[in-house]
Amino acid sequence: MAEMPSIDQKKCNKCGLCISVCSCGAIAMVNGVVTIIETEDCHWCTTCEAVCPTGALTCSFEIVVEETPKAGS
């Protein structure tokens, strides 16, 4: 299952700006509701989050430390 941005429908004002800026078709208006469409093409550009005027759409990051290979391994 692909990781996708998420929408808080309580905050969403259905302005559609996120849909207009999404270049991979991951966001659509379905029956009047802004809906995330799962796709492998979403590369987390976070433009949808940047344009959202209400903070309803979020692209959260998991922060991880890369394991350094041990010497000799």
Partner: peptide, 20 residues
């Protein structure tokens, strides 16, 4: 913020948006 919220990639950690 990065160092404080970093996980090991195994145990679940709090995710953060750029806005947060």
């Amino acid at each position: 913020i990065l160092l404080t919220h970093a996980g090991d990639g195994v145990a679940p950690v709090q995710r953060l948006t750029q806005q947060e």
